[in-house]
Design a protein around this nucleic acid. Structure first.
Lengths: 256, 256
DNA sequence: GTGCTTATCGTCAGAGAGACGACTATGATC
DNA sequence: GATCATAGTCGTCTCTCTGACGATAAGCAC
């Protein structure tokens, strides 16, 4: 308890390793995908895992997550309005803390507490692996969260659980926030935004009602003036994300 | 990065201390209150702080939070449906992970990463302090979150920030879940539940619309059969919390 | 041109929320 | 005991939003 002298006795506190793990999500080809890296050494050698690594002694948690993200993908992240924020980067992805996992046996080697971060990014070129020989890939979360993940092999450690929590967070958060725009490039159409919702929720939405809803919510979308036909069909108006972060009333996920 | 051999080299990982801090909220006398303990030793000696303490080498994070809660208040907690759950206790409070705070200088002595937990409890007898000479109290969060917390002195460490995050979590979570019942005793009336919402949100709600809403949401409330007049006026029906955990459609917080 | 695709505007019925009137059943007070 | 104050509970009305779906617009492929 806090009153005990031992709280700040350096010789008394049990040593922990602290890592960050990243749930990096994007929408590729109509489905929600997560970034995985292949482990090059035991334990779980050859397994797919979430990217992540140690927190350094002199850096904050979000800072560590941001650094790992840059190392793995070259992305710079905008921290969510919150604590330990990193300055907004150039091609920004959304980054927010997800949860912390510290089951005593979650790592067979030592006591590791991992702070998971959620990253939402627009579609990226195929990921570049880290400096070593391990490889990286985008995997559709639909397959990952099923009974048998990649090729029937579950993710390393408790990363399947972390991924599931991250996906659930993303699914619920786009309901009442404008976060879905984090999956889109700077300029996007209403149809592209709708496909993001459809991919993340795994549903089909009515284009007309969706259009009415998003264009009728003040501050959600800002017309950028241009149009595009990159999706085929009639030219669509281009928008950028408006300043609104919270959607009231929310986008309603169709009854599960 | 994950592929580096050093990830699991015990001599390479930087040592961290890991603690849990508790944001324990209850509704007392029409206002939302948080549990504070007074620090008996430096740093921040004499300051009010959130209860908390070290995570032991062999216990999980939620387990540590649950243990600290029991030590400080005698409460047993129901973990939220999730990970590292603790078995449901007798007089249960709701417990869920809030967020993790790890700014390098948040503790002047050493690098401490603290996993904060949010506890929602029914009104309790005046808290019993821990084993040492420090004292404990309930403080209305309205005062704590203002410009000058208790007697013009801010909370120790970054606990003011953690508290604010916990309060915000509670405020938003009772919108779309049945969590407000965690502030009520086992049996409660619709009016008592309404006063919980009013205290947490700091608003006044229409009793008739509130009654219609909560009694009309399937699974939210279960009639227990009895009635009570403990609030004065006409006898009110007693309810217990129903099985529903998610409210759809949500309770709407009046426009801020 | 025809056909196909996507975007965008409109209409209508139903559900839910906010405002508020009316009535009921207790305890407190004169 | 009559009256009043306090809560609780039921109903009504209007407005907004949603979901279902018809209709039109404006590109591209052939």
């Amino acid at each position: 308890m806090i009153g005990a002298m031992s709280r700040y006795d350096p010789s008394a506190f049990p040593p922990f390793a602290v890592t960050v793990d990243l749930v990096v999500l994007t929408v590729r080809d109509h489905s929600l995908c997560a970034l995985l890296v292949r482990r090059g050494e035991p334990p779980f050698q050859g397994y797919w895992a979430l990217p992540g690594g140690f927190v350094r002694p002199d850096e904050g948690l979000a800072e560590a997550a941001s650094r790992e993200l840059a190392e793995e993908t070259g992305l710079r992240a905008h921290s969510a309005p919150g604590h330990e924020a990193v300055g907004p980067g150039a091609a920004g992805a959304h980054l927010e803390q997800l949860a912390t996992y510290g089951h005593p046996q979650r790592d067979p080697r030592m006591r590791v507490v991992s702070v998971a971060y959620l990253v939402l990014a627009p579609d990226l070129p195929t990921p570049r692996a880290g400096g070593d020989a391990s490889s990286a890939r985008w995997a559709p979360v639909g397959e990952l969260l099923g009974d048998n993940p990649v090729d029937g092999v579950p993710l390393a450690f408790d990363h399947g659980l972390i991924l599931a929590d991250g996906v659930e967070r993303a699914r619920s958060k786009i309901e009442y926030s404008s976060l879905a725009t984090a999956f889109c490039p700077t300029e996007f159409t209403v149809g592209e935004l709708r496909r993001v919702y459809e991919a993340v929720w795994g549903v089909v939405l009515d284009p007309r009602n969706f259009h009415r809803k998003v264009t009728g919510t003040p501050g959600f979308l800002l017309p950028s003036g241009g149009t595009t036909t990159r999706q085929g069909g009639r030219p669509a108006q281009l928008f950028t994300a408006g300043g609104a972060t919270v959607l009231n009333p929310p986008m309603l996920r169709p009854e599960s």
